[in-house]
Each structure stands twice: as C-alpha cells, then as structure tokens.
Design a protein around this nucleic acid. Sequence first.
DNA 1: GTGAAAGCGCTAACAT
DNA 2: ATGTTAGCGCTTTCAC
Lengths: 339, 339
Amino acid sequence: MRITLSDVAREAGVSVVTVSRVINGTYPDKVGAETRQKVLDTIERLNYKPNVMARGLLGGRTYLIGVAINNVADSFFGDILQGIHDAAAAADLGVLLGTRRLDVGKDESALRELQSRGVDGIIYYGTTRHPKTAIHLAREGLPLVQICNRHEGLEAPYVMVDHFKGAYMATKHLLGLGHRRIAHVGAYLGGDPQGVLRLNGYKKALEDNGTKIEERLIIPGDYTWESGYAAAQELLDRARDATAIFASSDFVAVGAMRALQEVGYHVPDDMAIVGFDDMPFSAWQDVPLTTIAQPKLEMGAAAVDSLVRLIDGQKAEHVMFEPRLVIRESCGAKVDTLA
Amino acid sequence: MRITLSDVAREAGVSVVTVSRVINGTYPDKVGAETRQKVLDTIERLNYKPNVMARGLLGGRTYLIGVAINNVADSFFGDILQGIHDAAAAADLGVLLGTRRLDVGKDESALRELQSRGVDGIIYYGTTRHPKTAIHLAREGLPLVQICNRHEGLEAPYVMVDHFKGAYMATKHLLGLGHRRIAHVGAYLGGDPQGVLRLNGYKKALEDNGTKIEERLIIPGDYTWESGYAAAQELLDRARDATAIFASSDFVAVGAMRALQEVGYHVPDDMAIVGFDDMPFSAWQDVPLTTIAQPKLEMGAAAVDSLVRLIDGQKAEHVMFEPRLVIRESCGAKVDTLA
DNA sequence: GTGAAAGCGCTAACAT
DNA sequence: ATGTTAGCGCTTTCAC
C-alpha cells in the first residue's frame, strides 16, 4: 500500500494539514522550524510521494500535458519530444502521448483523447491546413501551443524555427555558389503553413538576387523520402537544366539524391542539394548533406515554457528560433565558407 | 467549468449513483431502460466526460501506463510506441512518457519518475545489463513488462522478437549464398541480453553449418551508425578475407556500408551485408539493405495486453515474435530466393 | 503555529 | 430499480 499524507502525519505526530503545509512550502513562516524538520524527516524516512491525482482532483488539474502528434514514428519529432519531456519534468508535469490511432480512422482524435483525459494543456504538432479541433479547443480555453508550425485561425502561441529565413538561407547559399536555376523540391503546396513559409523564403531569396522565379522549377510533394525520390524524377523530366535543389526536408533531399544517382548524376557536381531539418542520417549519406538545422531540444523546452505560462493564466508570446546553415558536401562549398 | 456527474444527475432528474451506473455499465439490468436512456441523452447533450482522476483516486489507479525508454529520439522505437499507444487507448489507458532526462544525469530516473506519478504499470524498454531499479520496482509489485529485451533477474514478462532466431536466419542466409568468413559487426558484447542473443544465433548458424567460429570476425560495438562505421574499418584491418557481415542493427549495417564504400568496396560484390530491425531508411540505401524485420506494431500491442493482464492481477506469459527475413540487394541474393 | 472541517468527482457498500 | 452514506488523498477556509 502506498504511503499517504496521514501516514506521515501520524508518524510525525502532527496533523495532515501541517504536513501538507511543509510540502507545499506555502505560508513560509506558518510552520515552526522544528515541526517542519520533524515532518521532513518523516517524509524522508517513509519515502512518501504525494498522490498527484488527489492533488489534481482538488485543484481541477491533472499535472499532465498532452503532446498531440500525427505520427509518433516521425523521427523528426524525437529530439523535440525529448526537449518537451525534460522541461515538463522540471516543471513537475507528466507528458501524455496523443497520436492518431491507426485502428481508428478519425482525424485529430489525438486532441480529443487528450482533452477528455483532462490534460492541463496541449502541445500541438499539426500539419493540417485548417485544424478545426485544435481551433475549437483553444477557443474553449484549453491552453494550447503549436510547435513547428503556425496555423491560420488557431489562436495559440507558436514555437518554431524561422522557416522563411531558413529557406532563404538555403537558397542564398546555392545562389552564392553560382547556381541560377534552383529547383524547390517537395514543396508542400496544398498544405501546411510551414511549407508555404519555406516556399516563400526560397522565392524571396531568388527575388532579392534578381533571379527569375520559375514555376516549372517548383515540384510539389510532402516531406517524405518517397516524395523526394519522385519529385527529383519529375524535375529531370521537366527541367533538365536545373543545377541545384532546395529540398523541403532532409528526407526529401535524400530521396532526391537517390533518384539523381540512379540516372548517373553526381552530387554536387551535376546537382547541388540543400535539405532542411538536419536529421542524423543526413550526415551519413554518401555525400553528406548540407542542410538547415533547427534547435529541436530548445524548441521543445520553449513550447513547455509557453504552455506553463498559459496554464498559469498568463499570456505567452510567439517564439521564433534562428535556423542554422550546416555546410557539408552536397553543394560543393568549401566547408570553411561560412554562410 | 467542466461538466460533472452531478450536473448530469441534476439535469436528468436522477441521482449521481444512477448516472455512474449507466456509465460503467455494471449491474446490467439494475437500471431501468428508460432511466438509462434519459441519462444517456443527458450525457450526450451536456457532452459529459468522466473525470479520470476522481475515478482513479477512488480505485487507487491512474489509468495511466508509463513507457520507460532511455532515449525517445531512438527512431527504432517509433512504431513500437505507436503500437503501444493504440492498444492502450483501446483499453482506456493513457500513455505517459518516461525517459532519461538529459539535464539530470541519473540513470533509470525514467522509472522512478513514472512510479512516483503512480502509473498503473510500466512498459520497460531497457538496454542495461542489470536494471536494478526495474528489478526493484517489479519486486515491489508494480506491474511491469519488458519489451524488446529480456533482463536477467527481472521477474517480469517480456515481449520481444526472437533475436536468436533472427540472427540465425540472417547468418544462414549468408551461408546459403556461399559465404564462409562471415563477420558479426556491432556485437554488443559487454551489454544487453538482446545483443548476446543475436551473437549466439550467429554462432549457432555457423556451427550448424560446420563453419568455424572465429573470434577475429566478431567486432564489438553498440547499435549506432558510428559504431558500424568504426567496426567495419576495424574489420578491414583485422580480417581482410571476410566476405560477409551480419550487423547487429540496420544502423550498424548502414554505417558499415559507408566505411566499406569509402575504401572502394562494392556491396554486395566485395562484401555482403545483412542488418537487423528493418528500419525505413534501410530500403533507401544506394544498395537496399537485406535485413531481419520485427513486427513492431504488434509487439507494442502485445506488451500492452500483457501489462493489462498484470494490472488485473492475472499472470502474463512471455511473448516471442517471429522475425522475418527481408531480402533486398545487399547480399546479392535473387529477390525471389525466399528464405 | 497548528488543527478541525469541508469538499474536489467519483464509486462501492448498504439501504429502500 | 434507485437513492443514501461514506470515503479515496489531498488542500483550503476558518477557528483556536
């Protein structure tokens, strides 16, 4: 049986209220120093752990935050999740996993599941264009912060890397290397906001450089390897004269490299490539991938900070992180050519 | 404010107990048909959701299971986690993430964190040789099932793929292709049980084939890409005459392929390779990797089943899944050469 | 400074 | 077939 407050009280010869007071540290001087010590000792001796549920029941809280994500197996999210976990643990919050069930078709069931469990707040990693459940929940007053993306109509602080700037940097890097016909591959055209941010960063860089934006060089797709593979093949069909690719993700970049290599292209000589996200595998490619890195751990922690603020009834600002260009070998740049 | 049982009771004009009864469906005929319907309607209308904490407080349960894992970012675990989540959700259990905090050095803090949150049970993905906290908790009576691994001294059912058999199959595949000097690379010698299971499967296959087991062909490591890269280099130093590699994981296999390629080797002509785990990226390699697949989703679900059984006070048997040989191109086998 | 009483939302026993 | 009572472990008044 688990040790309860009253066990401690009995052992220490005080009332439960007193024990509760020393634990919560409220009322700084409302507990006598020696009583306090006695209680502390007893807690230690009995190895007492407060019952989170009982406490939560009273305060109407669960001390749980939910992380809503479409696909847990998305390896991009691993580091972010670690960052979330650590920050949450430091704030005495548990992290509840919410993800779309494979066995239940319903979209956004993750959010509903989390809500009905009564989580104190939700970190939402969405990729939908119009996340109606999230919008609804946020409107109802459930603390919610969006991570990695910014959804129109969703009144909730976001924490994300500056996708626009990252895309701008990637494209500018290519431009700086002399490329002029730069394709954007895996552009998530019909889709999520981060995709259009990346697309716009790409366009702006071209524009600022006085380079023509050509629609034929923009190949749609999603963020997957398969998508990159197919998109590169289409690029070869559509625009043989392209000399560089800015891919919407590292998965896409690697898929594209594969397709290119199959037709005898050499990266970076025949085609330079920049990715986005800096995944572990990107460094392991035959031609290590130049890419845009996001501070994933920090983003996870920042999301928790914002969420905690919301839960406490305060306001939370949006947080935008700086992307970082990681130069490897897929563009042919000298590694010491910083930026 | 959240709707409570008594709100529903008041609206429906019955007592809270009655509402509770129709919700829990206990006492099949102890609630009148029309009362039941009235209550059901009210619940629907008010969109009432039971408060999990209150219910838990009473029963001494949290309806939460913890997943203890060293490193959330381990992409191998993604599908397993999805399997766990889905099965847990189907059993009305929440999945609480427990992982080693980066900012707190302490090992196994994941388990303690989960325990002190009062989870009903834990799915333990450990890789330690002697997991003393887990052993301790299980002995204390906390329902616990180990997944992907089997730890000595830990009295808890395990759910895992047959590592021995998988390694046996991999090695036999290589043997069947005519290889005789087959290295085992990334062998987790000092380490976790699954590593020795895989090593033993490898040895047994050689033995059954009458092939000599050579220590020089066994290169230690862990399951990482870096480890595979380094191990392959060492293999080249130690035993240039090796013609095939059975890698302890797909990460290792891919790292090894990279090292091999850097010195001009061609896979599979100069060196055949089999991996283990069937990770998504394995299919994307320049030379798609032949590997041993584990039924990850099913394993996650099975772990939840066992855990639920334990929580219900029943016994749970060990569950061993069949590995599956996935033949691709890294061994030079005809793809239709099944098994 | 400390304790007694009340109650968070729910269910298991015991009535009726 | 339905309601009443009590209590899970804790914190928040309010009293002493």
